[in-house]
Design a protein around this nucleic acid. Structure first.
Lengths: 189, 189
DNA sequence: CTTGTCTATGCAACGAGTTGCATAGAGCAT
DNA sequence: ATGCTCTATGCAACTCGTTGCATAGACAAG
């Protein structure tokens, strides 16, 4: 039930259309919350009905018109209410972990390529986060000053970076374990 | 679409009833995959229809009878097929991250108690994982030997431990940031 | 003897999330 | 002309996941 609130935060950071939101959810926000354009359009409609957001038709040249959404006073209140509610610590759903335990009943070595694929994807994500951090926060061209919004965006990004680094180290551990089991499936023979 | 496969892995590790599975999903398996008993009963029924698992009525004393499920040959094949399919790297859904970015439009200091609650929960989980690791893998009473299944369970557990340690460090970073913003909301005043 | 807890299974309804498809204007390449 | 990609929005159908409720036997506490 947090997609509404993720959209509110994103629209407060910068108003935009459903399409633009879906692009943002592929990028910065998507690092910690994903959503398809379908979900976004449907939820935007409900939020509009509930009076959480205002719409403005924006005619454009060279491309279809868009509906630009921005957060209303009622939307800000809804966000504040949610921020003050307690929430549950996240439960992880790691498909790869299921596969690793499942590999005990199949060929562990067959998983190596799959784990390497995941490792490459996480490595790419880390590089992407680090580039974003340089660009927006720590690099020479990054804006100076102590804007609370920027500080908070930065600490969330640092979380993403820490997550990817931890995951890379763990996947190396997994690969070493799988290779060990492949080399030496049964030391008694 | 991995709940079926998580159940297959769990039943291969040890056959059991829907109730027992739901307990396991609260514990070891729940560390990387969660499910309520409702979901488990529904999926078990479908898996039985599909011939992936066999049932055995087990009369019990002092408690209601149970249906013990075990994986059939077709179930093992289904698991093997899934293991050889590529899967997408996980997308995280971190509600707390949304709240942290949202705090820029509310009072950042008001989030401190919430973050501390999460920190305590993760700290408890870490202690729980470490106790399990001692008991089952690294402690003096732990079984010796190089069973591939145990090795793989251990590497998954190490992943959980790494995740909780990383999360605790990040939450400390978040707390420091929130406190800094609270002490010094606007240095120009 | 009633209340509460634990084991054990399940239905019904709802909400969240995914997938496939459709439309439509603009620009670009062949 | 035709097909391809990008922006922009949306419907319909489906699966996944959660919540509330119901049943029922055994046991323990008051």
């Amino acid at each position: 039930m947090a997609l509404e609130h993720a959209i509110l935060v994103s629209l407060l950071e910068k108003p935009g259309s459903g399409y633009e939101l879906s692009r943002r959810f592929e990028r910065s926000i998507g690092h910690f919350w994903t959503a398809t354009h379908q979900q976004i359009y449907r939820v935007l409609k409900r939020m509009e009905t509930d009076g959480w957001i205002d719409v403005r038709e924006v005619p454009q040249e060279g491309r279809p018109d868009k509906k630009e959404y921005s957060v209303s006073a009622a939307g800000r209140e809804a966000l504040a209410r949610w921020l003050h509610e307690p929430s549950e610590p996240e439960s992880i759903r790691h498909e790869l972990a299921v596969k690793i335990r499942g590999a005990a009943f199949d060929d562990p070595a067959a998983l190596i390529a799959e784990v390497e694929r995941h490792r490459a994807a996480h490595s790419e994500r880390l590089a992407h986060y680090l580039a974003g951090e340089q660009r927006d926060f720590t690099g020479p061209g990054a804006p100076a000053g102590t804007d609370p919004g920027r500080e908070l965006q930065h600490v969330v990004l640092r979380g993403g970076i820490a997550y990817e680094r931890m995951t890379l180290a763990w996947l190396d551990d997994v690969l070493a374990t799988l290779r060990r089991l492949g080399d030496d499936p049964d030391p008694r023979t």
